[in-house]
Structure formats: C-alpha cells, structure tokens
Amino acid sequence: MKKVYLLAIAILMFNCHNAQKKMGTQQIPLEKQITYMIDLTLKTPHELYINDILAVSRSRGSNAAIDINPYVLKNGKYKIKLRLLPYWHLNETTVSKSDIENARLFFGSYIRNKETDKILNYKADVALPIVAPKVDVPYFEQEWEVELTELPYELEGWSKGQDLRKWDKKELEKKVVAYYQKLWKMLNDGDGERFMKLWEKADDENAIYDYDTEIDEANKSEIADIKKHCVNRMIPLEDYEMKLYAEGRLVCLERKTHTREFNNYFPLDLKGWSPLVRKGQVRGGAEFPVKLYLPEGSNEFVIIRH
C-alpha cells in the first residue's frame, strides 16, 4: 500500500506541475506573446551569436528569421554578433566585399497564434547596418546592440550557473565528455524516456519563452523517434571541441571539422553540429544539440537549451 500511495502522490504532483506550466502560458494574452528575432538575408556561410551564445551556424547562405527568445532570460539590452565565412567547400579563402555589402539584417518581432499556426504582427523594421571593408577579407565580423522591452516573463535559465571559465579546462572537458557519453549511450540504446527526462528544466522554460502548451506531446513524439530511429545508429562520439558561452555559464561540445560528404549526402557539413549525430538510414543525419550549465553548489550538469 505504501508504494501505491507514494506512486499516487507522484502522479498527482506530475499532473499539477504540467497543469501549472500550461496555465502559466495560457495566462499570457496572445497579443503579449512576443517573440523577438533577427531577420537574415546572407549569401555566405555564417554564424550568428545572440547574448554571447551561438544561435545558428550554417555552411551556406540564408534567408530566414532567428528567434532571440531562447537565448535571453528577460528584457534588456543584448549583443548580436555576425560572422561571415568563406565557402570552404568551394576552396574559397576569403569573403568577398560585395557579399558583405549585400548582407541584410533586421531586428524585429512577431506573434505566433499556436492554435492556427499563423504569424501575426511580423515586424522586421530595425535595420542593423553593415559596415563593409574595402577589400575581400578572410572573414568578416560585426556586432550590434538591441533592446528587448516587451517580454512578458523572466526566466532563471543559466543565471545561477557556475562560471566554468574558472575551472581547469582539462578537468571540465573530461566532465563534459563523460556527460555526452552518457547521452550517446541513451540515444544509441533507444532509451528515449531517460534521455527526455534530462530535459525537464529546459522544457519548463521552453514552455514559457515559446508560449507552448504542447511540450508533453512533443516529448512523446521525440521519445518514439529515438526508440524507432536511434538504436545502433549513432555515429562515434568524436571530432569535437568544447565551447563556453554566456560568459562561461553554458558549455557544450561541437564538431570541429568540415565534412564534404556525410552518409551519401552532399553537401552536408557537420562542422558546428553537436557530436551527438544519428546517421540517416539512407542518407544524411540528425543531431541532438544540448547546452549545459552547472548550478551553484552542484556537481551535476543540467540541460537548459538545445
């Protein structure tokens, strides 16, 4: 009876927790569910950093909007940094002056109606002007500052994480790699339940910054996908480097070498990907990125973002 009683309490607490998450999101009126973003039009490979966190790394040009919300915790002023890189797979060694001049970045916001999946009030009207060099360059880098004023929430995120810059680098990397090895085994064994259990903190915040009440359904789908597609399909955990972001509060591993052909697919470049990569059955692959933080007073990493 004691075990049944404890199980009943656990189920009740779990259901209350999920109900609170949904209520918290639903209490924010649709017109206040602001998502800030950077609208990009770029012709070259690039990296975009938001609040000192790598938000996107692409080996080609792009015409897309990158959400800011996952990389900030509250309203305030934040740094946006863009790096333009040569087309490595064309053996180029410089970024052309004209490609830099033609780069377009705009800061703005939108609202997504989750019920209809329609985008409302899309505004990308604050230009982030490019100051181009007078000649071709090995790479191009520029920073801007943007201000967020209408987020209807404040998150803890990694704000109470340890400053990992103070750790011995070799000891820290050993600890990070051990955590990734644990994740790799879960994925390769198809153990989706254990893998997604580690996402609880990240999911709680995702439900808030993405105004999402369907996290549980998404997790069920992810668990099923891991069980179906990951068993004995994870490539070896290798070719990685450790990266620190958010002034040392976040850490992750990223692939460090370009790939010209991965699993019969050209050009699929794994550089910058998480080293947790599932090989596609016929071609290509999928990555499982994680960003970790180490809470103050703890010795156990916590997944906080993709």
Rank of each mutant, 00 (worst) to 15 (best):
R58E: 14
R60Y: 11
R60C: 02
S62K: 10
A64S: 10
A64M: 14
I66C: 02
D67Q: 13
I68Q: 02
N69D: 07
N69E: 04
N69H: 03
P70W: 12
Y71W: 14
V72L: 00
L73I: 07
L73Q: 07
L73W: 04
L73G: 01
K74I: 10
K74D: 03
N75W: 11
Y78T: 02
R83A: 07
L84R: 12
L85Y: 08
L85T: 03
P86Y: 11
Y87A: 00
Y87P: 01
W88I: 07
H89Q: 14
H89R: 11
L90K: 15
L90V: 03
N91T: 11
E92D: 07
E92K: 15
T94A: 05
T94P: 01
T94S: 05
V95W: 09
S96G: 00
K97D: 10
S98M: 08
S98F: 00
I100M: 13
E101C: 10
N102A: 13
L105K: 14
L105F: 08
F107P: 04
S109F: 07
I111M: 05
I111E: 12
R112V: 04
N113P: 02
N113R: 09
K114R: 15
K114S: 09
E115M: 09
T116W: 01
I119A: 12
I119N: 14
I119L: 15
N121D: 15
Y122M: 08
Y122S: 02
Y122P: 06
Y122W: 10
A124T: 13
D125S: 05
V126K: 12
A127D: 11
A127K: 15
L128D: 11
I130F: 10
V131H: 14
A132R: 09
A132Y: 00
A132F: 00
K134W: 06
K134S: 15
V135R: 14
D136N: 10
V137E: 12
V137R: 02
Y139Q: 14
Y139E: 14
Y139I: 02
E141D: 08
E145A: 05
V146F: 08
E147M: 01
L148A: 03
P152K: 11
Y153A: 03
L155I: 08
L155Q: 08
G157R: 03
